[in-house]
Design a protein around this nucleic acid. Structure first.
Length: 213
DNA sequence: CACACGATGCGCT
DNA sequence: GCGCATCGTGTGG
């Protein structure tokens, strides 16, 4: 229940992204405490797919440039909210998108926490939480959770973007129910392709379809 | 001011 | 796999 410190968030986005897996997100709202275990995240910095691309500051993405440990919430497709955790040092844009939660509440369907939009709906996160400081433990915060030492982290590409699509900046906990989209090939123990496997015709054209949305 | 479009999710084929 | 709801935001005139 003790909020993670500013120091935890003030690191490189990729490091924080991985470190957030297994942690627990809390939101105190309407006299209730909602929570869920973080099982899927994506990193965004100033890359081409980021709201802070080319380090361009706008009213919407301003929080990404501010101090780490704050919530960056945005509204998209006219109906969904997505929540990010701001990283890096002040002035450098960076945030971790939360895409999957486990165990929102006993008996809740697993899919309620699966996907950035449903996740926000399940925890009651909207634009009014944008900019909140997560280190105070008042309304919205993240605390340590149980993370089994054996639990494997899968690293793969981010979802739903059309540029910088080769960056493997999505991380999830293998076997968790809240993961929105699995990547079987990334889950395979052997990740690196041996040179002999690159002979034409012997490789499956990985993710040939489904890249466009 | 006008307009194109999206870090999604859902229902249907 | 495909279409689409629905509106805040960024961009350009």
């Amino acid at each position: 229940m003790t909020p993670l410190t500013r120091r935890f968030y003030s690191r490189s986005t990729l490091v924080v992204a991985r470190a957030l897996l297994g942690k627990v997100l809390y939101h105190r709202v309407g006299g209730r405490l909602l929570s869920g275990r973080i099982v899927e995240v994506e990193a965004y910095t100033d890359d081409a797919a980021s709201h802070a691309r080319w380090s361009r500051r706008t009213p919407r993405n301003a929080v990404m440039f501010g101090p780490a440990g704050h919530a960056y919430v945005y509204f998209t497709y006219g109906m969904h909210h997505c929540v990010n955790i701001v990283t890096e040092s002040n002035g450098r844009p960076g945030a971790v998108l939360l895409r999957g939660l486990d165990c929102l509440r006993a008996g809740a369907p697993a899919r309620d926490g699966s996907g950035p939009g449903r996740l926000c709906r399940a925890l009651g996160i909207t634009l009014s939480q944008n900019g909140l400081d997560l280190t105070t433990g008042e309304t919205l915060w993240i605390a340590d959770g149980r993370r089994a030492r054996r639990e494997r982290i899968v690293q793969t590409t981010r979802i739903g973007i059309r540029v910088a699509e080769k960056l493997r900046w999505r991380f999830y906990l293998l076997g968790s129910d809240g993961v929105s989209r699995r990547d079987r090939s990334a889950e395979a123990p052997q990740r690196e392709m041996a040179p002999t496997c690159r002979i034409a015709g012997t490789t499956r054209s990985a993710s040939a379809g489904g890249r466009r949305r």
